[in-house]
Computed example of a mutant assay.
Amino acid sequence: MTGIRIELSRRERAILRAVAAGRGVLVSSCEPALTIDGCWCDHAAVHNLVEAGLIEKERQVPYGLATPAVITRAGEAALAEDPRST
């Protein structure tokens, strides 16, 4: 970790926890699209999490196809550092 603290919104923390629990699916496209338990997530929150490197696709898939979303080490660290994440 670079020592930079990432401030997450409540919505971003909830999405990050759901992805960590294995409940997220990312659709391969020009902009990140994520579902949690089959429901679409807030586009801006997902964009922020992907852009910050906190979540990513489990594997590369062709455009338009889905793959499980996974939390990165940076995402795990961000949740661990955040006292409001429990």
Rank of each mutant, 00 (worst) to 15 (best):
G3N: 10
R5I: 12
S29Y: 08
G38C: 11
L16R: 05
L8S: 01
L54N: 01
L54S: 07
Q60F: 04
N48I: 01
V46H: 07
I4W: 04
A69H: 07
E56N: 09
Q60V: 06
P62C: 00
D82K: 10
A74F: 01
P68L: 13
R84F: 14
S28K: 10
R11S: 09
K57S: 09
A66N: 09
T86H: 12
A14K: 14
L65R: 11
A21F: 06
G22F: 06
V25F: 02
G38K: 09
A80M: 03
I71P: 11
R84W: 05
G38Q: 15
Q60P: 08
G53E: 09
A66H: 11
E51D: 14
R23E: 09
R59K: 06
T86V: 14
L16V: 03
L16Y: 12
A52W: 07
P83H: 06
E76M: 11
L49M: 01
R17L: 15
A78Y: 04
G38D: 15
L65M: 14
I15K: 07
L26M: 03
V70D: 08
D37P: 10
M1Y: 10
V19W: 07
R10S: 10
A66C: 14
T2R: 10
P68Y: 06
A20G: 02
S85V: 12
I55A: 05
E31L: 09
R84S: 12
R23N: 04
L79E: 11
S29L: 11
P68Q: 06
T72A: 09
D82P: 11
T86C: 09
E58Q: 08
R11H: 06
V70Q: 13
A33P: 00
S29C: 04
G75K: 00
G22P: 10
A20I: 02
L49C: 07
Y63R: 12
G64Q: 10
V70W: 13
A77T: 09
K57Y: 01
P68E: 13
E7K: 10
T86S: 09
E51N: 03
A18Q: 15
G22N: 03
H43C: 08
A33I: 06
A20Q: 13
R23T: 00
G64C: 03
A74H: 03
E7T: 01
P32W: 11
K57R: 02
R84K: 13
T72P: 12
L49H: 00
C30P: 08
I6P: 07
E12P: 11
V27W: 14
P83Y: 05
I6C: 02
I4F: 05
V19Y: 03
P68W: 09
Y63W: 15
V25I: 13
K57G: 01
A18C: 08
I15H: 02
L26A: 00
A52C: 06
P83W: 03
A21M: 09
R5K: 08
A21W: 07
P32L: 13
G64A: 04
A45C: 13
D42W: 05
C30W: 15
C41L: 10
A44W: 12
